[in-house]
Design a protein around this nucleic acid. Structure first.
Length: 262
DNA sequence: CGCGACCTGCAT
DNA sequence: ATGCAGGTCGCG
């Protein structure tokens, strides 16, 4: 579930559950997560208090009273779930953080690709403005894309250019902006940059609103304009949605509305 | 740059 | 059995 809107929702759940509470135990159930958070580090969290949960791009940080921070990145399939008292954790639960009020926050991740680590805060470097940040202006995006000859779709996936966009919303935002995903990033004209910035904002806003409404749901009709809709009709012009592969990842777009001429 | 690796589950 | 998946890193 993990692009900016999904991580934002998950971080909100975690925040409500853990901020102001003291950790009573941390169990790491899968070896892949133990690499980032070995038993000794997990044990050292006991007695620490969570002061804040912050999201930056797709990464989350739990700021702790000890001055350290617990960093979590969901990668492909991570999510937070709350375990009921006495509930047996589902198979895909990879780590469980227990709090002093009995709350258990669990990392649910079927593929176990999530990364957890503990350390002192470090300044985030090499990460661009949030996709939702007003500081992401057409001028700023233009500057970030200058000299980049990669396709604009790939550029949107680069967290150093814009933080929080993933493979789904990159396709969705480009469709909304009517921009050909194959266009070299440094060749976008001013009107395209303006459309793209507002399309990114709208895409994020709509996704976040939908998550509020369809809380807990995943699959569903009409969730996306183009993503995963190869061969179906474009919601704007009715032409067939196409799928291409860019840098090894699927891109969906409508050739008619997103022609290079736009 | 593209590609495999990291993991598991799901659809074909 | 094979191929594919919402992310990122490190390799050649």
């Amino acid at each position: 579930m993990p692009e900016l809107p999904e991580v934002e929702r998950a971080a909100g759940i975690a925040r409500a559950a853990v901020v102001g509470r003291t950790i009573t135990s941390v169990r790491v159930l899968h070896p892949a997560q133990r690499r980032g958070l070995p038993a000794r580090a997990a044990r050292s969290l006991i007695g620490d208090r969570v002061e804040a949960v912050v999201r930056r791009g797709k990464a989350q940080r739990f700021r702790l009273a000890s001055g350290r921070e617990l960093r979590v990145h969901f990668r492909m399939t991570g999510d937070w779930v709350l375990l009921g008292s006495g509930e047996v954790p589902p198979r895909a639960v990879r780590a469980i953080i227990a709090l002093d009020d009995g709350t258990r926050l669990a990392l649910h991740d079927p593929r176990a690709l999530s990364v957890i680590s503990l350390g002192m805060p470090e300044p985030d470097e090499g990460i661009g403005p949030e996709a939702t940040d007003p500081a992401l202006t057409p001028a700023r995006l233009s500057a970030a894309l200058a000299g980049r000859r990669i396709a604009i779709k790939q550029a949107l996936l680069d967290q150093a250019i814009v933080a929080g966009i993933g493979n789904i919303y990159a396709s969705e935002a480009l469709w909304r902006a009517r921009i050909d995903p194959r266009l070299p990033a440094n060749r976008l004209e001013a009107p395209q940059l303006r459309r793209l910035v507002s399309a990114i904002r709208a895409t994020m806003r709509i996704a976040m609103a939908r998550h509020a409404r369809y809380y807990g749901r995943d699959a569903g009709e009409g969730r996306f304009a183009v993503y995963d809709r190869e061969g179906q009709r474009c919601r704007r012009c009715g032409a067939n949605v196409r799928r291409i592969v860019q840098a090894g990842r699927s891109t969906y777009f409508c050739l008619r509305c997103q022609g290079a001429a736009c």
